[in-house]
Amino acid sequence: MSVRDRYWLRLLLLVGIPVGVLLLFFVLPLVIMLWLSFHDGMPPAPYTLENYVRLFDGLYLNVLWRTLTMTVQVTVLVTIVGYTLAYSVVQFSRRTTLLLLLVILPFWTNYIVRMYALINIFQTGGAMSWALNAVGVLNEDYGMLFTHEAVLIGLAYVWLPLATLPFYASLSNLDTDLIDASKDLGAGPIKTFYSVTLPLTYNGLIAGIILVAIPTFGAFVTPALLGGTDQIMIGNVIDQQFNQAFNWPFGAAIGIFVSLIVLVVLGLSTKIGGNIVGVGGDQQ
């Protein structure tokens, strides 16, 4: 009997390695974290629900709320800027490849290097302060490092390419005849945008939003470097629990809780979003 005839062997050869890798490096760590989160200290410690109760302490709820607000703001900002950027690349340019390259270029630079560049720009007496003084807007040293806005701009800057690419992909796939048809039937440019362009690029829009919202929700390097101690996000708390407080069970509990929030929001948004726009998941 050859391999071809043996169903289970074929299946194993086909998906065995990826499934094995996923089990080992994704499912197993997740299970360990879940198991850990119900312990009072590192095992063999007694089981407890204390870690989850502690989450609802005002301190952590505050950080969680700040993280949610930040995520929404970053996502909205990136969506507006990224969509406009992708739209203009598609509409007004013949040098699409070059412009797309410019969009991706920051990704080739080390994340930390880019963060330090932003620190240089935002700090008191830094590049931004110098430029504002040079053009005469300000006449004193100015800095915005360690503010909410600094973190917002930093995160938006980092995730912009991630959202622009799916926006670009869906916009460039849009048949321009459909735009022409809409105008031909009497719809002006704004009406055409809302009734044709937006609904037909909806999937790309959602993809870009998800790609930005999820890493923003878990961000910890950017808020640590640009926001300092006043702007910590939930990612920083998890980081602290694992690396400074060495309270792994509590860190694990926060991690699990955050993942649950993401899953619930994701599920709700695709369901509601799909109904609002009137396109199901089977489009495109």
């Binding site: 048949d175 005849d177 459909l178 048809a181 105008k183 009497g186 002006g188 489009q283 495109q284």
Partner: peptide, 20 residues
């Protein structure tokens, strides 16, 4: 005069029906 203010309508080569 822009297309949306003209009293003409077009049947496109690829028809351009709105898929959504």
């Amino acid at each position: 005069v822009p297309p949306f203010e003209r009293n003409s309508n077009m049947v496109f080569q690829n028809l351009a029906l709105f898929p959504h």
